[in-house]
Computed example of a mutant assay.
Amino acid sequence: MTSSSARTSPVDADVLGSEQAAFRDAMAAVASPVAVVTAVDGERAHGTTVSAFVSLSLAPPMVLVSLAERSRLLAAVRRTGRFGLNVLGAHQADLAAVFARTGAERFEGVDWFRSGGLPRLPGSAAWVACEVADIVIAGDHVVVLAHAVVSEADGTRPLTYHQRSFGTHTPLSS
């Protein structure tokens, strides 16, 4: 068994790099919904764009989101035990880009309001207010399992991410 902190040889690093590139390309072939996960720590709002989230359970209603292990957002979620899931509408690609930036004040110049104490982005296709049930370490991310305590949808087409581009779902003609 090898330790995850063990150093790899240059050959191993090259192989690992090519495996990561191949995995990244394979995942780009999958259309994913785009959301901004938000939380408040004190008076400061935190948020980040994610495409790794899914509906987990109907009874009870639960979602799963993946967050970077070292993110400030995750630290806020761990402290408060709550977060908002703003499922972006097709017209909100600009917001996805804003919240995907690193090291910037992401809420600066962005319209938002508090809904149940959580940052909510107006115009999103769906909103889910969540309470953390469990956090599981998974590679360089953590998987947050959460109960959906409030869920709303407005019928707006969702923003998706596919082949490294934003788009939306178009139903097939029947």
Rank of each mutant, 00 (worst) to 15 (best):
Ala76Cys: 08
Ser57Glu: 04
Met62Arg: 12
Phe113Asp: 15
Phe107Ala: 05
Ser115Arg: 15
Arg72Phe: 07
Leu73Arg: 08
Ala93Gly: 10
Ala68Leu: 15
Val77Cys: 07
Arg78Cys: 11
Asp94Met: 13
Thr102Gly: 12
Val87Lys: 00
Pro61Ser: 03
Val98Gly: 05
Gly123Asp: 01
Phe99His: 00
Ala104Cys: 13
Ile137Arg: 14
Gly89Glu: 04
Leu121Arg: 07
Ala148Gly: 03
Val149Leu: 03
His141Ser: 09
Thr49Phe: 13
Phe113Met: 13
Pro122Cys: 07
Glu131Leu: 14
Ala76Glu: 06
Ala126Thr: 05
Val149Cys: 04
Ala76Gln: 07
Ala100Asn: 08
Phe107Val: 08
Trp112Leu: 04
Pro122Lys: 08
Glu108His: 09
Gly117Cys: 04
Arg72Thr: 10
Gly81Tyr: 04
Phe99Val: 06
His147Pro: 04
Val143Gln: 06
Thr48Glu: 14
Gly47Pro: 08
His141Ala: 11
Thr80Met: 13
His91Trp: 05
Ala90His: 11
Arg101Val: 10
Ala126Tyr: 02
Asn86Arg: 01
Arg78Phe: 11
Leu67Gly: 05
Phe107Pro: 00
Leu88His: 04
Val98Ser: 09
Arg72Gly: 13
His147Arg: 15
Gly117Arg: 06
Val144Thr: 05
Gly109Tyr: 03
Asp140Tyr: 15
Ala138Lys: 12
